[in-house]
Amino acid sequence: MGGERKVYTLAEVAGHNNPKDCWLVIDGKVYNVTKFLEDHPGGDDVLVSATGKDATDDFEDVGHSTSARATMDEFYVGDIDTSTIPTKVKYNPPKQPHYNQDKTPEFLIKLLQFLVPLVILGFAVGIRFYNKSS
């Protein structure tokens, strides 16, 4: 890694996004991993799919070994211009109504709302017939 460091924009790095020319951005550094695609234990698709963006989170989530991190040095080609990487926006899920896991009270209320009028109607009809027959 000697000499002057080249600084790339994300757009420049994103142009290297296929199995014949594959560059990644990890921890602010640019790596040309084209020669490593066949040897990558996770397969070449994993690396190609991480192009065109900051792949740091993808790299860290896997939990690479110390030797894997050391291997990266041979693929280093320069640094990324961090001003060209979009800032991450925190995802805020939409507000949803409270989920009632115990649906029993809600079910009983609806059942009673249906049955009580039927019982009242039944009594009214029964009383009417009882009075007519007496």
Rank of each mutant, 00 (worst) to 15 (best):
M1P: 06
M1S: 14
G2I: 03
E4N: 09
R5M: 12
K6Q: 10
K6I: 13
V7G: 02
Y8P: 03
L10Y: 02
A11F: 05
A11W: 05
E12T: 04
E12I: 08
V13H: 07
A14G: 15
A14C: 07
A14S: 14
N18H: 13
P19V: 13
P19Y: 06
P19C: 06
W23C: 11
L24Y: 04
L24W: 04
V25I: 14
V25Y: 04
V25D: 07
D27F: 01
G28M: 07
K29F: 06
V33Q: 07
F36L: 10
E38H: 10
D39A: 15
H40T: 12
H40F: 06
D44L: 13
D44F: 08
D44C: 09
D44M: 13
V46N: 00
V48M: 07
V48A: 05
V48H: 05
A50E: 04
T51H: 00
T51F: 06
T51Y: 05
G52L: 05
K53Q: 02
K53N: 08
D54Y: 03
A55P: 03
T56N: 01
T56P: 03
D57L: 06
D57S: 10
D58I: 02
D61M: 10
D61S: 15
V62F: 08
V62T: 12
V62P: 02
G63N: 07
S65I: 04
T66N: 09
S67G: 06
S67W: 00
R69K: 14
A70N: 08
M72Q: 08
M72F: 07
E74P: 02
F75Y: 15
Y76I: 08
Y76R: 00
V77C: 11
V77M: 10
G78D: 05
G78H: 07
G78R: 02
D79A: 13
D79I: 06
I80G: 00
D81H: 06
T82V: 10
T82P: 03
T82N: 06
T87N: 10
T87F: 01
K90E: 13
Y91N: 00
N92Y: 00
P93M: 09
P94A: 11
K95G: 05
K95W: 03
P97Y: 05
H98N: 01
H98T: 14
Y99W: 05
Y99A: 13
K103R: 14
E106H: 02
F107P: 01
F107E: 08
L108E: 05
L111Y: 09
Q113S: 14
F114Y: 09
F114C: 10
L115H: 05
V119E: 08
V119M: 13
A124N: 02
V125S: 12
V125N: 08
G126P: 07
R128Y: 15
Y130G: 11
S133F: 10
S133P: 08
S134N: 14
S134E: 12
